[in-house]
Amino acid sequence: MIATKEFDYEPGEHESEKASNSYLMSLVAIIAGLPLPIINLIATFAFYMGNKNGTYFVRWHCTQALLSQISMLFVNSYGFWWSVSIAFTAEEITNKYIAFILAAIIFNLSEFIATVYTAIQTRKGKHVTWWFYSEITNLICKANK
């Protein structure tokens, strides 16, 4: 699922720091807006925009972090509004709801662990690639010519 690969070049100290911060961004933003599932995405997107003129290594990891947050948004938003409708309307808790919330928790937890691991490894200058996300990132993020 997660693999450490060789990058095109050896990233510098500050590059590794910035790339690692792109993953930390999503975790720290939880403090600011825990009930809302979109805050993490906004924070990661803002960081991505701030580094869009950065080096290839930084941009690559910002893109991967952003993509992971986008996929989380759909799952979390659906779960959030389903929970809100149960809390404030006549809708009742069903087996489907419990199954969805469990799946969402597992998805969030695995994403959280992967993000923490990637942030640590990227800080050391290692190029950590995620299954599926890294392929899309390679398509989106191109090296400077």
């Binding site: 500050h14 720290v28 933003a29 960081f47 580094n51």
Partner: peptide
């Protein structure tokens, strides 16, 4: 930015300064 921007800048300000 209702706290969000301030958190983002904590991570970005050093790079921005450089």
């Amino acid at each position: 930015g209702l706290g969000v921007w301030a958190i983002i800048d904590l991570f970005m300000i050093m790079g921005a300064t450089r």
